[in-house]
Amino acid sequence: MAERNVLVTGGSGGIGRAIIHRCIEDGYQIINLDRVAPSSLLKGETHYAVDLTDAHATRDILQRITRDHNILRVVNNAGFIRPGTLEDATLEDFDAVCALNLRAPMLVAQGLQPFMQAARFGRIINISSRAALGKELRTVYSATKAGLLGMTRTWALELAPFGVTVNAIGPGPIATELFLSGNPPDSPKTKKILESIPVKRMGEPEDIAHAVASLMDDRAGFITGQVLYVCGGMTVGLGQVA
């Protein structure tokens, strides 16, 4: 059953929760690494509590899990934002966001890489962001998400000879509970965001989950080192002069 195990980081809410729901629908067994437990475990889901910003704790939990499970698929989803202008960004913000958004995916990939290489098969999917292309008030966050794209491409080249694909997904505005709490549907700010989306709707966590499911499939072995922006068309034409 090794080929049916999927490790998802940050799977207890938001986009991560939708990814887990979709993976279970597709017949996978889930290992959910999250600091907090989900409100209820799904059939086929196992939760391990861990603070992924703690490098030692992350390595320890990966060693423990891989003793009991052979995992050939991983979704590096966990991440968070500390908004701020360049002037306001602090070293504390930088270190904290890098620890979760950039260092944790590297540690997870390192922990699972030997098993994927031995199996001559693997799927690594990194959840980046449209903000990697640039976004106001996101100096630290956009840096980590752009860095994740660089790691994605590098790992794709290094692991391709072993049958391991590595790809990234860049979500645009997604209507998670966290997003909606800071962007009420009737606020001018939210309306402005909606007007900027060519398909004229907010993304749903299930939109990201569907993209993950596609890249995770056995038949996706010729797609690697790519970034799929799931953004309703927001990235189309960026940089063009009117």
Rank of each mutant, 00 (worst) to 15 (best):
T176H: 07
T85I: 09
K191D: 09
G134F: 06
D60R: 10
M202V: 12
D54S: 13
G79L: 08
D217R: 08
S187Y: 02
I24L: 15
R22G: 05
Q29A: 12
G221K: 02
P184K: 04
K200G: 13
K200D: 14
I208G: 03
F80M: 14
H69Y: 11
S39L: 07
I81C: 08
I197W: 09
G225E: 05
L62D: 01
E158M: 06
N5Q: 07
Q117N: 06
A156N: 07
M106F: 14
V212M: 00
A118C: 03
R153Y: 04
P38R: 04
S214D: 13
Q240R: 08
L33F: 13
E158F: 03
L149R: 09
F162E: 14
A160Q: 06
A175P: 03
L159N: 00
D60Q: 12
K200R: 15
D218C: 13
T46Q: 13
I125N: 05
E136G: 15
E136M: 14
R59G: 04
I65H: 08
V97S: 02
T9K: 07
T9D: 11
L86D: 13
E195G: 15
I169C: 00
D217Y: 05
I65D: 10
L180R: 11
R22V: 05
V140Y: 00
N167F: 06
M234H: 02
G239C: 01
R67A: 15
V108K: 00
F94G: 05
L180E: 08
F222R: 14
R153Q: 11
Q226R: 01
K43E: 15
M1T: 14
L107R: 03
A96M: 07
L91R: 15
G221I: 00
L41P: 06
A18G: 12
V241N: 05
R64A: 14
A211S: 02
D186N: 06
D51T: 09
V140M: 03
V36N: 15
K135D: 12
